[in-house]
Amino acid sequence: MTNWVEVCAADEIDEEDVIRFDHEGRTFAVYRSPDDQFFATDGLCTHEKIHLADGLVMDDIIECPKHNGRFSYKTGEAKGAPVCVNLKTYAVKVEAGSVFISLA
């Protein structure tokens, strides 16, 4: 069963930006792409446990604030050193102006 959890209002995330979302002891990063779609990944970098929401979104890339490791936030793919472990991604939907992510 899909467990949709409300994150925030859609307009609380700027285009080409990211916010941090904490829920039941876990932390996520929720993104809005330049073409106005929403995505979600685990909140912490896989290199060291650093909050990706402090990083920079460029196109479909989230760049970690600590050592500039890069991931595609759409697929979670680690884009090369120093990050080599992919990020987990989560389904996202927007309903009635609110963003929801799906936590299994």
Partner: peptide, 11 residues
């Protein structure tokens, strides 16, 4: 503190 300045430095 933390990564407060990271994004702006990167930009």
């Amino acid at each position: 503190t933390g990564n407060a300045i990271a994004r702006d430095i990167r930009l």
